[in-house]
Simulated scan of single mutants.
Amino acid sequence: MNEVAEKVSFQVNEQGYYGMFGGAFIPEMLYPNVEELRDNYLKIIAEPEFQREFNDLLRDYVGRPTPLYLAKRLSEKYNTNIYLKREDLCHTGAHKVNNTIGQILMAKRLGKKKIVAETGAGQHGVATATVCALMGIECIVYMGELDIERQAPNVARMKLLGAEVRPATCGSKTLKDATNEAMRHWISNPVDTHYIIGSVVGPHPYPDMVTRFQSVISEEIKKQLNEKIGRENPDYVVACVGGGSNAAGAFYHYLEVPEVQLIAVEAAGQGVTSGHSAATTALGKPGVLHGSRTILMQTEDGQVVEPYSISAGLDYPGIGPIHAYLYDSGRARFLSATDDEALKAAFELAQIEGIIPALESSHALAVLDRLGASPDEVVVLNLSGRGDKDLATYMKYID
C-alpha cells in the first residue's frame, strides 16, 4: 500500500458521486431530461455570455456582493470574532435566488418553456417565481399543505409574482412531500419543463450545479475577509443544513483548505432522540432519496421517517450527497440545534444586533457557544435568510 495517502477530492466525479454518495436514481421517463442537463450544464455555465448574464443579474438584480458584517456585540458575547455573511440582504430575502437565476438561464438555453419547483419555507418558491416573472416563463410551485399554513407571507408573494402554488397533501405535508409532487409533475411533463431544484439534492447533476451557483457566497467571503483582515481563510465557517445549498455555497471554496473548520448545523426539533427531529446525520443511514444516494432518516425496512423542525426549510429527512460525504469523510463537523435553541438564538441576534434572522439561519447561530473559538479566531456564519417569513412563529414566543 502506498504510504502517501491519495489526496481526497470533494468535487463530484464524472459519474455524479461524492465518495459513495450521489448518482442519478430516476424513472426511465426522466433519463432524457437529466442526461440533457448532465451533458450540457458545465459547457453552458462556462460560456462567456452565460457568465456575463449571470454575473450582471447577481450584481444589478440580486444586489451582490452581499456584505460581510462584523457583528461586534455578538462577538463580545461569545469572545471571538463573528462575521455574518448577509445573504438575508439578497433580493427575495435569502440565498435561494443565486441558484434560481443560474437555473432559469440554463433552462432558457435548453429551450424549456415552463418551470416547476418545490419549496419548504417558501424562499426557494419566491426566488423561482421571481425569476420566472423576470423572464416571462410559466411557473408552478409545489408546497406542503402544512408549510402553506405556516409560511403564508411567502405564499402570498409567490401568487403576487404570478406563480401557481399547488399544495402537497400527502405524508407530513412538508418539504419532502412537495419534492415528491414536483418530481411527479416533471415525469409527466419531461419535454417542455425544467425542474428548478432548490437545494443540493436530487439526481446528478443537480447537487453539483446548485453548489456551483451558490459558490458565489464563499467566493465573496474570501475576497471580503482579505479586505477586512488581510487573509482569505477564517477559522470556522458555520451554516445550517437541511438539504444544504447555503452551506454548500459557504463551504465550497474552503473544501480543500483543511485549516478552515466547516460546521454544519441540522435541526434537532424537539430533541435528537425525541422522535420529532430532522437531525439526519445523527439519526440516518445511507439510502436513496429523491434521485440520489445520501444519508437519510429511515426505518429498518427502508421507509422514510417523517422529519420535524419548527423551521420549514430544515424539515427534510435527508441531506445533499455532498454533505453526506463531508460528514462521512470527517471534513465537516455536524452539530444540531433544537427548536428552543434556535428561537433563543433568533431573539438574541434581533436584540443585540438589530437583525431578525430566518429560523433556518437561527439554527446556525445557536451553536456559537459550542465551537470552542478563541478570542483571536475568526468565525464566518452564513446568515442565509431574513426572518420576515417567520414573524408569525416568532410572535407566539413574545411575552
Rank of each mutant, 00 (worst) to 15 (best):
L349Q: 08
V379M: 10
T338R: 07
T294D: 02
S292I: 13
P65Q: 01
T299P: 08
Y397E: 12
D315G: 02
Q214V: 07
L225E: 04
L314K: 15
Q51A: 02
L289E: 00
N382F: 15
G320A: 06
Y31H: 14
V155I: 10
Y316N: 00
L134A: 01
N246E: 15
K223S: 02
L57V: 03
Y83K: 07
R52F: 14
V241A: 00
Y142P: 01
E145G: 03
L160H: 00
L105Y: 05
I187T: 07
P207H: 09
E164K: 14
A250V: 11
Y18C: 10
S188F: 08
A332D: 06
D340C: 14
V257H: 01
G136D: 04
A129C: 07
L296M: 05
G318I: 08
L283A: 03
A279Y: 12
R184S: 11
A332T: 06
N233P: 08
L74M: 15
A133F: 04
S245P: 12
T294C: 03
P205W: 14
R86Y: 12
E47M: 13
L89V: 14
T393K: 04
L110E: 07
G244P: 04
P203I: 04
V241T: 00
G111F: 06
L175I: 06
G269H: 13
L343R: 12
L105H: 09
I398P: 05
L359T: 07
A267K: 01
V8S: 00
K85Q: 12
A182L: 07
Y236I: 01
R86W: 13
A392W: 13
E232F: 12
G287H: 12
Y41A: 05
V200Y: 06
V288F: 12
I217H: 02
A358D: 05
A5K: 11
H323F: 09
T280A: 09
I45C: 09
P317K: 03
K77V: 04
M20H: 07
Y236G: 03
I197C: 00
R109K: 04
Y206P: 10
T92M: 09
M158I: 05
G63R: 13
R331T: 01
K396C: 04
K77C: 05
N233G: 01
Y61F: 11
R293G: 07
F10Y: 15
R231V: 01
C170S: 14
S75W: 12
E300R: 14
R52N: 08
V216H: 03
G16W: 12
L255E: 15
G120L: 06
E49D: 13
I356H: 00
G249R: 03
S361D: 10
A337K: 11
L335Y: 15
K77M: 06
H290I: 03
P286H: 02
N55C: 01
Q214K: 05
Q261C: 00
P321T: 12
D388C: 05
Q214T: 08
K72Q: 11
K228E: 10
R333Y: 08
E353P: 08
L296S: 01
C139H: 11
L37V: 12
L58T: 06
K159E: 07
K43E: 14
M209V: 03
A364F: 06
T299N: 13
T294K: 12
V97I: 11
R86N: 13
